[in-house]
Every structure is written in C-alpha cells, then in structure tokens.
Write a protein that binds this DNA or RNA. Structure first.
Lengths: 336, 336
DNA sequence: GGAGATATACTCAGTCCTAGTATAAGTAGA
DNA sequence: TCTACTTATACTAGGACTGAGTATATCTCC
C-alpha cells in the first residue's frame, strides 16, 4: 500500500474575556485511533478545531479556513495568520492504518467575542489550563517548586554522561528561568518541548506506546503538567502562544481582541493575560500614547471602581505610519 | 474529475559570496504548462529547487527537504527553517489539467559555500536581479526615479475613486519610502505585491492570460522590473527575503553564512548585503562585541589593504545566554 | 466627608543608540 | 624612505528611550 499525503487545516482561535485568554476547543473522539497495548480507559480529549480544504472551491487556504470555521462553529474570524505546517511522521496514530501521511496547516486567529457557539461541542477553554507554568501574573507559579524543579533535577541526573548533563542543565535553566536566568515569556514552544522530553506531558507517554505496541514499561510515573490534547495539538497551541507573545511587541495585534473602544487598563489586562506577566501601568500608557497607537474618544467609562477612565480607540493609521517600530540594527544610515 | 490536493516542497537556499547575496535556482521548463492564448516565445524561466516528500520514509518535512536537496544538488544544508505554505488556487497553471491543487511548503536554508554544484542546471543567482529595487547600498536605486515613481503616479491616477486613490498613495509612499516616508528594508513582500499589483512584474500578465485564454488585451506595456520566476516563486523568494531581513535583528543567523572565522568587516558586508543598506561601522562593532556575539581568535587577516583585522569567531554560547534580546514591552516587572 | 479605588501627569536616573573624532597599523607607489 | 591611501580600532558628546517611582485628580461606597 503506497502511502499518500493528505492534508488538514487546524485553527487556534483565541479570545480574551476578562483577564483570561481562551482558545476554542472541540471534543475529539479518541476511540479506534490508538494502537493495541495502550491502556483501556481512553478519555475523550480536547482538540483544536480542524477542517478540510475544498481544493476546487477555496481560492486560498485562508478562505478555506474561514469557511469551515463558519460552518462548524458559526464564528466569523477577524484576524487570521498562518502559523506553521506540521508534518512529522506519526503525529496522527491513524496514519499507519490509513496508509496516509497526514499533514496539518495550522492557523492563528484572533476574535473579539467569546460566545460558546454550540455545534460539535465547541468550548472556550483557558489556555493556561494546558500550560499552567506559563502564567506568572501572580508571581512564579507553584508548579515550579512542586513539580518542575525536582523533575529537572532528576532529569539532569539521569543524563548518560557529563556533556549531556551540562547541556540539560543549561537548557532547563534558560528556558524555565531557573538558576538566576530571566524568565523569557516568548519561549513557550521551547518549554513545552522540554516538558515533553522530560516526560511531564501525558501525550509523550501516549505517543511512545502508540509507536511500539506493548512497550509501555515506563519506570516511574511522573506527575503530568497541564491538560493534554489530542494528537500534537498541544504542540500547535504552544507554537501559537509563542507567536502571539512575540508578535505583540512589533505588531498591534492586541486590538483585534479588544472592543472598538476600551480603557487603557483593559488594554493592559489583555496584554498581561497574553504574555502572562504584570506590566508597569504608567509606562505602558506612555508607550502606547507616544507611539500614537490609540486616540481619545472623549467618552468615559464610569464603572471602574475609582476615577472614571477615558475610552480610547485604536488608531488604524499607525499601520501605515510606523512600518516597523524599533529597528535594532546599528547604523542604518538614512539614505534618502 | 474530482480535484485532489498534492504537495511539493520548495527551498530558498541562500549564500553570500563577496558582498553578493545569492540564491540557488534551477531552470524550469515552461513548455506545455501554459494555457492557449499566451504568447509563443516561452523562455525557460528560473525556478526555485523543488522536490517531493516521501510520505513513508521522511520522518519530518525538514529531513525530506534535506534529502532531496542533497540528491538533486549535492548540497548539505546547514540552517533550515520553514517559511510558509503557499496554496492559492492557480498558483500552478498545470493544476487544472491535472485536476490537482498543488500546494507548496517553502523552506529557507542558509549555507556557507556557493559552489555551483551542477546537476539539473542549478545556478547561483544574485537575488537583487529579481528585486533590483531592494538594494540601497549605493543609495536609492535608479529604478525609483526612472520606473517606480512614474508608474506609481499613473497607478494612483487610474484608481476608480478618491478613496482608492488615497489608499494607493498611502500604500505606495509607505512601502516604497516615497513622499518623505522612511525606507523599511523588511517589507520586501509588501513591495513585491505592490509591484505585482501595479503590473510591473512580468508574471502578473502571465498569470492573467493563463486564467482567461485570449484575454491578453493589455492597454499599455509597462516596463518590467527585475527578472521573473516560474509559478509564484518570486513571491516565495520575497517572503524569504522579508524573513531573513527581519530575523537578523533578533537571531544570530548571519553566522550561518560566514566562515568559522571572519573579520568584523566581513561580517558587516554580509549583513549589508542581506539588508541592502549601509551600516555604521564603529557602532556595529560595538554592538556585536558588547552583545558578546563574537570572540577573539588572536589571529589576524593581513590582506585587508590596510591595517590587519583581527579574526573573530561566533560565540555559540549566546544562544543559551541571551534568550531574546530587546524585550520592548514596558514594565515587565522582574518577578523572580 | 473620609477611605479606598483607579486614572493620569510628571520626574529623575540610567542605559542604549547615533554620529561623530581621533588614532593605529598596514599597503602601494614615487 | 617618505607619502598617500586604506582599513582597523578606541573613544566621546548628545540625544532618545526606559524603568521605577512620586504626586495629584476624580470617582464610589460607606
């Protein structure tokens, strides 16, 4: 049986409602799809929405995505960007049976409202329930002391030799911000891959046992961090997080998640929800205003619990005015 | 005939030899592939190398890419990253005849040496021959006065109404750095798309006539800017340029293109070749040294034509030390 | 009307970047 | 050998931006 390539589209659809970043998930029926030798109690897992391209009707991939998202969930997507194409062998356990290599083109989409529009069991889930170690808004999460640090220690000890040991120590210190290293909120994917490699992700064990039937002879049961997802969807989600957190700095994507008029505190809370870190209020205000990203509306929000806050709106013109903020290369002699 | 999806991999392979950034191209035989009604004299066009995934043997997409690049050209790729997946309808004119939608996953690869390794007519070509408007190292290129500005003017005038006219003016001023706007070297893709839209790219006309046979009733022949490529390969190339130019700022990818030891001027020339702009020598040196991106070797290059220059090497350790330079978000309160 | 909340203005010091000047150390040719 | 020229490297003054804070304004609730 000659294996063929088949293709799916996945969407990471993000909304922020009251300080909580959420993603749209569906329930994935994991029934037949697992090789023999795996454990019997298969919970139905969360999965990212997915659909197919209509090769003859969808003029572009993005339009195809918008179409099936609309059909499946009733959602009309706003901002959409392509994320990455995932194609590792065995990313889908059904591949071997079907004789098909299943690739997935993943997209990131940002929407304003988070109505839990019903069909196919679509639900909005807080993304930090999949990545509990990523939310530092209330300080360093407990899992670092309780789970990650001890797991890291034993993972380092179990390295085959000194070189590997040093490499594991270096990597975990940098990515997890241990041993004095600063926390870099953008490295979501790197951290997930470390978590996976260390055996702290449920899907790691699942993937291993699906590959070699009957080889589920894992030594110790490690605690599992966060909820897992179907297939490689947690990896896709981690890729999306990295992308959003990185992009915030140089493209005004936050505004895709905010209502048309908003207070500066609302803006701040949404940014904080996304990057998982607290910001300095006065400086954020100064930055946002001096970059002319927002403009006054003259109206005020009074239900703030304190002095009323002015409502602002996004100045679309900056997309034209400020091509790319913060160049970062040295001389850049201005040849005009 | 039910159309199916088929998949190819494309590689933008970049090297820099003596101040010239080059990409590896092959000759694409455009023979049967064009709809009737197109002109008869079909030159064979340059194309990006492309190959197929072996669905059952290539464990990852990237490994598949490395395999066929090795097989086709003998090149062993170093740095490789996924660029984008292109899937617009009719990006390949043969699609309709084959009843297949042809997608392409494009990769960016950086290599050190530019040996023109023979098979399949692989040649290294200066990338600025495809984008002559992108090289500002000797000041603003002539094409701006001779071609772009007049074409922009008439393109703006021919807009259907005032709103479109203003939108066209704004867009062309920002992207081309006209009317006082600064030149943003990263917006390569935006500029290419504008060039295409304005009818200054040969492939625009070709794509139109392939779509509607017999409709090649273009009014005036506009001058064509730069050499075109097969299919949508010039668009892929523009995407790659944007990516490289953007990435230089926050990832040390230049060093993938340099020999293991190099002088700081060599480094500067490579960066300048990539971004197409001159840099301030003393500041680049300071930046690179204070960021501890390089380390002394103690050896000197004497054939500089002046005072000998010390040879440096890349400090791989920075990949570990400095997670992401220049955070750019305001408060970022350090919660440790 | 005071406590408590949030909003907004302003300040000060440190860091980094720009655009230079100054000086060192080679080569090529008269 | 001397001079002109080339390139390398060190250093600096001024300005822009950033981090972290103080001060003040304006609401609600009791």
């Amino acid at each position: 049986m000659k294996p063929r390539v088949s293709l799916g589209l996945n969407a990471v659809i993000v909304a922020v409602t009251r300080e909580a970043p959420r993603i749209l998930t569906i329930r994935h029926d994991a029934s037949a799809a697992v090789a023999p030798g795996a454990k019997g109690d298969l919970p139905r897992e969360d999965a990212l929405p997915s659909g197919l391209l209509h090769p003859d009707r969808d003029r572009t991939l993005e339009l195809g995505l918008r179409r099936w998202v609309r059909e499946q969930t009733g959602l009309e997507l706003g901002y959409v960007e392509q994320l990455y194409t995932f194609g590792d062998l065995d990313r889908n356990p059904e591949e071997r049976e079907m004789g098909q290599r299943v690739l997935s083109i993943a997209y990131l989409a940002l929407v304003r409202e988070a109505r839990p529009s019903g069909t196919r069991g679509a639900t909005w889930r807080d993304w930090y329930s999949f990545f509990p170690w990523e939310d530092w808004r209330e300080g360093r999460p407990d899992v670092f002391l309780k789970v990650i640090r001890p797991a890291v220690e034993s993972w380092i000890r179990s390295a085959p030799d000194g070189a590997h040991r040093r490499e594991r120590r270096e990597r975990s210190e940098i990515y997890f911000g241990l041993g004095g290293a600063p926390w870099d909120f953008e490295r979501v994917l790197d951290r997930y891959e470390l978590i996976y490699e260390m055996g702290l992700a449920a899907e790691a064990e699942r993937d291993r046992s699906a590959g070699q039937p009957g080889s589920s002879t894992t030594a110790r049961r490690l605690p599992q961090l966060g909820e897992s997802m179907a297939l490689d969807h947690r990896r896709i989600l981690a890729t999306a997080l990295s992308r959003i957190r990185g992009k915030l700095k140089y493209r005004p994507v936050v505004f895709e998640l905010l209502p048309t008029s908003f207070t500066l505190l609302q803006l701040q809370r949404v940014v904080e929800a996304l990057v998982g870190v607290r910001l300095h209020k006065q400086n954020l205000r100064r930055l946002v205003e001096s970059a002319r990203l927002v403009e006054h509306t003259g109206r005020y929000e009074t239900r703030t619990g304190g002095r009323p806050a002015e409502l602002f709106r996004f100045r679309r013109e900056v997309l034209r005015e400020r091509p790319a903020p913060g160049v970062g290369l040295p001389g850049l002699r201005h040849l005009g």
